[in-house]
Write a protein that binds this DNA or RNA. Sequence first.
DNA 1: CTGAAAGCGCTTACAG
DNA 2: CTGAAAGCGCTTACAG
Lengths: 361, 361
Amino acid sequence: MAKRSASRLTIADVAAAAQVSTMTVSRVLNDQPGVAPETRARVARVIAESGFVRNRAARALKHRHTGVVDLVVPKLDSAHILEIMRGVEDMLAPTPLRLAVSATHREERGERQWLAKVADGGTDGAILVLARGQSAQLDELRRRRIPFVVVDHRGELAADTPSVGATNWSGACQATDYLLSLGHRRLAFIGGPPSFGCSRERQSGYRAALDAAQIPTEQALIREGDFSQEAGYAAARALLALPAPPTAIVAGNDMQALGVYAALRERGLSAPDDMSVVGFDDIPFAALAGPPLTTVRQPLAEMGRVAAEMLLTLIDGAPLASPRIELATALIVRASCAAPRAAPPAGASASAAAGVGVEGS
Amino acid sequence: MAKRSASRLTIADVAAAAQVSTMTVSRVLNDQPGVAPETRARVARVIAESGFVRNRAARALKHRHTGVVDLVVPKLDSAHILEIMRGVEDMLAPTPLRLAVSATHREERGERQWLAKVADGGTDGAILVLARGQSAQLDELRRRRIPFVVVDHRGELAADTPSVGATNWSGACQATDYLLSLGHRRLAFIGGPPSFGCSRERQSGYRAALDAAQIPTEQALIREGDFSQEAGYAAARALLALPAPPTAIVAGNDMQALGVYAALRERGLSAPDDMSVVGFDDIPFAALAGPPLTTVRQPLAEMGRVAAEMLLTLIDGAPLASPRIELATALIVRASCAAPRAAPPAGASASAAAGVGVEGS
DNA sequence: CTGAAAGCGCTTACAG
DNA sequence: CTGAAAGCGCTTACAG
């Protein structure tokens, strides 16, 4: 077979070697009918022996699609993101689609860079983690008719935007209820950035649980962080310095809960003896922390999987059953909560709280 | 301008609207000279207003490249992988290349799936994390003349294979020296999978340090894990059950070190009072563990960045200054090590150990 | 400075 | 069952 110098083999080379037309080779390549068994076998053999690789660009040129799908995240820095990515990859692995990952970093620059790549006609669709509801990014995607799905979001999201989230409200509500059931009455909340939809929902769940228990919310007990360990630490320090500190803290996410641990340690205190702490996310380290952290599990990988599934549907041009999907959270009880020190006799036991799963021994 | 139904705009549409040939549009698109300023301005305006997107596939077809680069990892499940990915993404973001991420999972299936996508002509080059030296994957890549760089590796790697690693040997050696300097004489080692190059190097570094101190290595003190928290836990339990347990453990990686913590906790023991523990990696959680973990930092993001840089060089067809690059590790002293309980008077102080960085207060 | 022609490697109708 | 022709959207020489 005549290989043209160093250049790659083409379908024409294979056709020549197998003594058929390029058409026939194409049919064999695509498992299409209309080829005599012997011919097919001969062509298949030549393909295998020659190590021929069909040119993806030429195919894409005909098909009008690129074969790549984007996952766009703010930063590649948290276990949280990795979990979502895992779900997306899982779903996409068996398909012929490639998963292109990019981080927008400081929004401006990164978003523009990403948009430039997409503008080059580089994607069949995108999954956007923590995208802002009103953004040039989303507008551009809509304008270009590139299908996309948002996983969690910032700002407000139009109701018809395909999106995936977790039941943040009820998760936070359940966590707060659990602490109430242990006898706590002074419950603090350290939320995430208020621009995040999930932050607002969690705070609202916390408030709702207190309202239902007829406990007035106290502004001094509600703090705001950026979901980092440092933010949790700073907020917890401030709470501990209060004239009447809380006896329990709902931490908004696990990293902030770990920051609370640090602040406690610094004062020679610890959970759950001196303070009950609940996280949100259930990142892998939650179970390894000392003490193992009671937290609200978000099915992150599953959220990624569902988002990928929705995107595949949109790419196929099919309608979505529902534009918005919220997956259920679950309270995972470990060892960071207990009845408050000088608690009223705990009438309601922990296990009396609805839907509580206890992990481990 | 005549948009052809729902289909996307082509360069011909732009040319018609601007009343020039497609050639001229192409020149404007590619910032090539040879276009009158006014013509260029007019064409540019039409491009901007129409929202024209140049077809990447058609471009790639001419250029003979795909514009995508692969990052292939065993699994998307560790902070370790995320760090490497971050470095790679960082390096690639300003280039026009897309970063396609895939996991090989249980090797067989995943590798074949990945190979099938690559076989489709889908990549300009690849960064392979923990690839096996002798594998169908690497052979195929070589055969196809697709440039690649290996980050860490399993099995043996041919000397001329472009690869990036860390100074595992000297990192483990330094960690062991540090424990020796604290007065420890019974030092255990919980290694990773022996098939991993980095595992073998770390174990060898541990042995070398003991040899240099003229302490005979004891087979019972050398254990093998799979780099998981569970493996560290199991190995530490076994070590604690020994008639003469060690007073310090070099844990091979941070996850195993956290497993050691769990085993200690289970027995009512803790680091560093009852046992000194050193990790390897410095994953973000190492600093947050209780007690904060003394560990050997691997510059993972930097390794990713360097690998990406090497790959870009190879894709450009330029020669590599060196096929193998090892980045320096650094011992990060936190709070998980101390002199052994009934130690000989510690003549050598910790800070006497060479190149030791102490973090925090 | 500008453009008509050919071609990248494949696939989609359409004939035989 | 098999193939000659045209075309996907761009770019690369080559003329003017």
